[in-house]
Amino acid sequence: MTTTSQTAGTTTLEELERRATERRDRPSYGHDALIACDRLVRIFTTDGVEVQALQGLDLLVTEGELMALVGASGSGKSTLMNILAGLDVPTAGAAKVAGCDLLAMDGKARLRYRREVVGFVWQQTARNLLPYLTAAQNVALPMQLKDGRKGGTRQKARRAEELLAMLDMADHADRRPHQLSGGQQQRVAIAVALANNPSVLLADEPTGELDSATGEQVFAAFRRANEELGTTIVIVTHDQAVASEVRRTVAIRDGRTSSEVLRRTEVDETGRESLVAREYAMLDRAGRLQLPADYTEALDMRHRVALELEQDHIGVWPDDKEG
């Protein structure tokens, strides 16, 4: 009996050591992602009242993606964008963009991050461009701020010309913002954001002040930048037309990622292509997911639910009140 117990004890200890080794050798969360947010928390305090804008949000974005973030007002999406842009600092959790730790940067590193790693396009056209500079001068300005005003003037001008040409704005290079339409201003703003060849381009409601036709032109400019330059682009939008044009749309609700829609092209037996979209609930690292409100309301699910583990799925059932 003693020998058996010792053997069983030894086997159990070896099993625990094996599991611990597997966990230790497992790649870290988001190790291969360009953007990795891990249990991100942001708390604001106003007049002694705490508001949790982000409540343990998880998000991974791979290099080269063109994706959209959607959510109701107050869901936390703009807070997330400000953190990714280096304009705000998380309260807790982890956030990395292109290898930069957004919680560990000092002021100098944060300024360099905003100049070199990320580009940003605001909804308000007036915030993106300096009114007294031409389109070409606006595009060249970030390069001058990064490298200094001396040297490389010709290369900066050439880079500005190339970006404006790519976005069909070459004929407007010498015009100032007040001489451009709203859509034209946003396309110049995209060129400004791309000037220093950032790893990530962030855009907060870039078509919010534009009509649908002009919005389509601006989104086409984002797509061109993504395809021709390989720039990773994340767009916050309420515009369903924009959200439906990207391969991946992530929804944020109550400070967490709640669901995402993935779109892919399928070819049937006749060779005809069709776009197929499927919605998924997001499962965070703590095992939590947000069930769609219309689902829970339809089944009168409140407070608690019953779970059953099946061979190939998990069943979620309304609480048996009588039981």
Rank of each mutant, 00 (worst) to 15 (best):
G64A: 05
G64V: 08
M67N: 01
L69N: 03
V70R: 00
V70Y: 00
G71Q: 02
A72M: 00
S75A: 10
K77L: 02
K77E: 00
M81W: 00
M81L: 14
I83G: 01
I83W: 02
L84M: 11
G86P: 04
L87E: 08
L87I: 15
V89F: 09
T91Y: 02
A92F: 09
A94E: 10
A94W: 01
A95Y: 03
K96P: 00
V97P: 01
V97Y: 03
C100Y: 09
C100A: 15
M105Y: 13
A109N: 05
L111Y: 02
L111S: 15
Y113W: 12
R115V: 09
V118M: 01
G119W: 01
F120G: 07
V121P: 01
A126D: 07
A126T: 11
A126Y: 09
L130P: 01
P131M: 06
T134R: 06
A136I: 11
A136E: 15
A136M: 12
A136L: 13
Q137T: 11
Q137N: 08
L141W: 09
P142F: 11
L145H: 09
L145M: 13
K146D: 08
D147S: 14
K150C: 02
K150M: 06
K150V: 12
T153G: 10
T153A: 13
T153K: 05
R154I: 08
R154E: 14
R154V: 13
